[in-house]
Structure formats: structure tokens, C-alpha cells
């Protein structure tokens, strides 16, 4: 681009809207400062712009070096801090350069543009209505029944086509939420499938257990606590549920379903790590604090002649958080 063209361009722009970089200084000069002459101001402005130019240049050079740094760091192994550090510094320096140019070397205005009317005129509205209703509806004007039929078939398409989008997504709940894999006589096993014997836990010990054959099952997970060496009656009717002081509670919180794995041995409480519901172990894991609404269901336990812990039955109520059908079964 030669200088002649350049000059013409600026000229053209100025004519069209006073778009020149000098606008900024013009504004400053407008504001009179007593005691300093016009030429002083111009000199100050010139020096200011020069300094800013240097800042922009240095930033962009810095950015270039940083991006080379990104490449080198990547090549030698891509250590996260150096890779990201160079990237961030490079982008920031480039950003600073661009912002300096935009903020100090480009026309700043203020410029103004007029808004347009948003609402249509009365005539435009009438024309719109005419096209929509008269022209568009002419075919159906005396064929109302056809319109109804078309609407009906479109609706039917919408409904039937939605079937797979809803029903095929998953199985019906059925009784899934009402039962676990615990059966009368199920041996109590660890997560590795090792059966638990009656002297495996010391008093004050805990273990996450499952019914035999279902180690790792989400619904059947149970927290086994040995709260004492003798049977504990947590509730009336549960006299035989805790041989040798072993208590089994569903590990699924009745609030939001998190595993209640936090056992406080001294205060005999179970705490849910998600929302801090607290259950009183010796009182049948009734919630004493926090948002959980119901006790953790207790698993009736027994010991066979070989000394293995066994479940007497499944939990007597659905485990886990509440749901709509919970009380209907």
C-alpha cells in the first residue's frame, strides 16, 4: 500500500464519520488546562502514544517468545505447569498488545448510531394478517374437517413416535426398589466374597458386607458393626437380630442414597458423608440429626453352627431414599 492510497483512505473515513485516531487527543485538547499551552499538551500526548507503542511491541514480542516456550516445553515432555504457564503468559501478553492497540490507537469516539423502530406500523400489521389468514387459510376455509383430520394425524404421529423415546429407555421399576439380594440364610461376606465369622470383628469394629454371591451389589450393601460382645436390642421385636453384638444396617442413606460409611465408635453414631445425617446405632439407626427422614433398615442376623454370620431374612422394608410407591406395597 503506498502512502497516497493510505492518505486517501483516512480522508474518506473522516468524511464519512470523523473516524480518525486523532479523535482521542482532540477530546483532550478540548479540555483547557490553565498554565499549559496547546503545544505542551500535544507533546505530552505524542510521548504517551510512543510509550504505549513500546508496551504493545514488548508484549507481542513476549507473547511470541512464550509461544515458542510452549512448543519447546511440549517437545521435552509437556510438564503441566510450564506448558500451561507459557501458554497463559503468551495469550495474556498477546491480549495486552491487542488491547493497547484497540484502546489507544484506534478511534475512540464516542460515536453514535440511531435506533430503528421495533414495532410495525398499522399498515404492516394489516398486510401481515392478510397474508397469514387470508392467503394461508384459504384452502381450509371451507374444508374444516380436513384441517381437523390433519391435526389429528399429526398429533397421533407425535404421540406414537414418542413411545420408544420414553418406554424403551429402561425397564419398569417393578419390585426392584423393594428388595435386595439378602435371603433367609444368606451368608454374610466381605467385598472380596470371604464369609464373615462371628469372631472376625472386634468390639468397635466395622465392615462393609454383602449377601454371598452378590459381593459389591449396590442395593444389598450393608454396614456390619460390632457394637458390643453381647446381643443388643435396638427395637422391640429385634431381640434376636444382633448375635454377639453384631448389628447390620443398610448402608444406603434414607436421604439421598449415599453409602453411610462413617461410624463414630465412641458416640455410637453413623454419619452420612454426603449431607451429614446422623443415625443413632444403638437405637436402631434412627436419624437424630440432618435431613434423613427414616432409620436405616436393620438386617436380622444370626450365627450358624460353624460360626458364620447369616441373614435371617431380607430387610423388612425397602432400603434407600424415599420414592412414590414406597408405602403401597
Amino acid at each position: 500500500m503506498d502512502t497516497k492510497e493510505n492518505g486517501e483512505n483516512i480522508n474518506a473515513v473522516s468524511k464519512a464519520g470523523n473516524l480518525s485516531a486523532g479523535n482521542n487527543s482532540h477530546n483532550l485538547a478540548n479540555h483547557t488546562c490553565e498554565g499549559c499551552g496547546r503545544s505542551d499538551l500535544a507533546e505530552q500526548e505524542r510521548r504517551r502514544l510512543r510509550a504505549l507503542e513500546v508496551v504493545a511491541q514488548l508484549s507481542v514480542i513476549g507473547a511470541l517468545l512464550c509461544f515458542i516456550g510452549v512448543g519447546v516445553t511440549y517437545w521435552v515432555g509437556g510438564q503441566n505447569q510450564f506448558l500451561g504457564g507459557f501458554l497463559a503468559a503468551g495469550l495474556a501478553l498477546l491480549g495486552i498488545g491487542v488491547i493497547v492497540i484497540g484502546k489507544y490507537f484506534m478511534p475512540q469516539g464516542p460515536f453514535v448510531e440511531q435506533r430503528h423502530e421495533i414495532s410495525s406500523t398499522v399498515q404492516q400489521k394489516q398486510l401481515f394478517e392478510e397474508a397469514l389468514v387470508e392467503r394461508g387459510g384459504s384452502a381450509f376455509k371451507r374444508r374444516k374437517f380436513l384441517g381437523v383430520l390433519m391435526g389429528a394425524s399429526a398429533t397421533m404421529f407425535g404421540i406414537t413416535f414418542a413411545f420408544p423415546w420414553i418406554r424403551s429407555l429402561g425397564p419398569l421399576p417393578g419390585k426392584t426398589l423393594f428388595q435386595t439380594w439378602w435371603r433367609p440364610g444368606s451368608r454374610v461376606v466381605t467385598v472380596h466374597g470371604r464369609p464373615v465369622k462371628v469372631d472376625d470383628l472386634e468390639v468397635g469394629g466395622i465392615l462393609t458386607v454383602f449377601p454371598e454371591g452378590h459381593a459389591g451389589s449396590s442395593m444389598s450393601q450393608t454396614i456390619l458393626i460390632r457394637a458390643a460382645s453381647l446381643p443388643i436390642t435396638t427395637r422391640k421385636g429385634r431381640e434376636t437380630w444382633s448375635p454377639h453384638g453384631y448389628l447390620g444396617f443398610s448402608k444406603i442413606c434414607t436421604h439421598a442414597g449415599c453409602p453411610v460409611g462413617l461410624y463414630e465408635e465412641q458416640s455410637q453414631q453413623l454419619l452420612c458423608p454426603c449431607h451429614q445425617s446422623i443415625f443413632d446405632v444403638l437405637d436402631g439407626a434412627v436419624p437424630v440429626f440432618g435431613p434423613a427422614p427414616r432409620p436405616l433398615p436393620q438386617l436380622p442376623l444370626g450365627v450358624d453352627e460353624e460360626g458364620y454370620l447369616r441373614a435371617r431374612s431380607d430387610f423388612l422394608e425397602p432400603v434407600g431414599p424415599g420414592f412414590w410407591e414406597r408405602t403401597t406395597a
Binding site: L19, G95, I101, G102, K103, P107
Partner: peptide
Amino acid sequence: VGSPLWPTFVAKTTGLFLM
């Protein structure tokens, strides 16, 4: 009232993107 898209706003907003 403000700055025009080209070039002032483009430069500033590119700068903000980079930042």
C-alpha cells in the same frame, strides 16, 4: 453511543478473548 465494531471493538474484544 460507543465504539464501532471495526476496528475498535474487534480489537478490544479480541483482547478480552485472549485474556
